[in-house]
Design a protein around this nucleic acid. Structure first.
Lengths: 149, 149
DNA sequence: ATACATGCAAACATTTTGCTTTGGC
DNA sequence: GCCAAAGCAAAATGTTTGCATGTAT
């Protein structure tokens, strides 16, 4: 486990407080669960966790996650809306993407992907079969930056 | 645009056929739309596309996507279930993941991420603000490989 | 005291399934 | 003609919101 998880939680709670959130049991629980997990969790994972001592409602956890995301304490993974995205697998073609978090525009990146080499190493080390990867860059595109400032 | 998209469609239809699917108008439409798009599309994108000449039902498109994914003609992006995943943003910490497509297990990768350098280049070139990236490796973990063979 | 946070339940959106009919092989 | 695929509609799942109440500040 990570060094001093309690300290990380404490700091995270402080950052949350500094950003305007109130110190509630639910907030502390959610941050603690996310930090202990060391990996991405779903709303259900958190809301049904035995470590959610406050027994907070799913809606409460949901609203906390929204607020924490707005304040950049946490991040929501993947293409950011609730639908599944599909893409062709074309022989000899690999794609990475550049996505605007504000307008959702997805742009294909024409780059030499530096991950291919790493992928081979990981395949060997982990013993995973049929290994492939996804690499996405997210941010705010120039158009959207102009609109909001 | 890509060289000879018609040819790519034709080949994709052939691969679909070879894998046991019947040549239907809906199949041709869906493959053609995905190939022309050059980027990931949602079920709705496809089912409501003006290029879906057959006017195929959403359920039909859905079932086609499932079949095409099983047969590895297309890929579904992101962590593969329908829920959103959240993760802590910790100062100075960046994480990449290794995920099993069969059992869904998510493992944190302790690697020096080779994308950081690239990220800076992309930030400069694209003009995107607040740039960050996600890198995930997917495959079949040893346990699952053993189970199915 | 006030405004933010919560709980519960209802509304939503998207995905997934059941069943009958159509059509590729 | 047979079985996969399509169409329509309903069920399932996960997310989001409304409103009355509780609570941190």
């Amino acid at each position: 486990m990570r060094p001093e998880p309690e300290k990380l939680v404490k700091e995270a709670v402080e950052r949350a407080r500094a950003s305007g959130l109130r110190r509630t049991k639910a907030l502390e629980d959610v941050l603690s669960i996310l930090i202990d997990a060391c990996q991405p969790l779903t709303l259900a994972d958190i809301a049904e966790s035995k470590d959610l001592d406050s027994g907070a409602d799913k809606a409460t956890v949901y609203r906390l996650l929204m607020k924490l995301e707005e304040r950049s304490l946490i991040r929501r993974l993947g293409l950011h809306d609730r639908s599944a995205y599909y893409t062709m697998i074309l022989p000899g073609e690999h794609s990475d993407y550049l996505i605007c978090n504000d307008c959702g525009r997805i742009e294909k990146l024409d780059i030499a992907c530096p991950v291919q080499v790493l992928e081979k190493q990981i395949a060997k080390k982990s013993g995973f079969k049929k290994l492939y990867h996804e690499l996405e860059f997210f941010g705010q595109c120039p158009d959207c930056a102009e609109k909001v400032g």
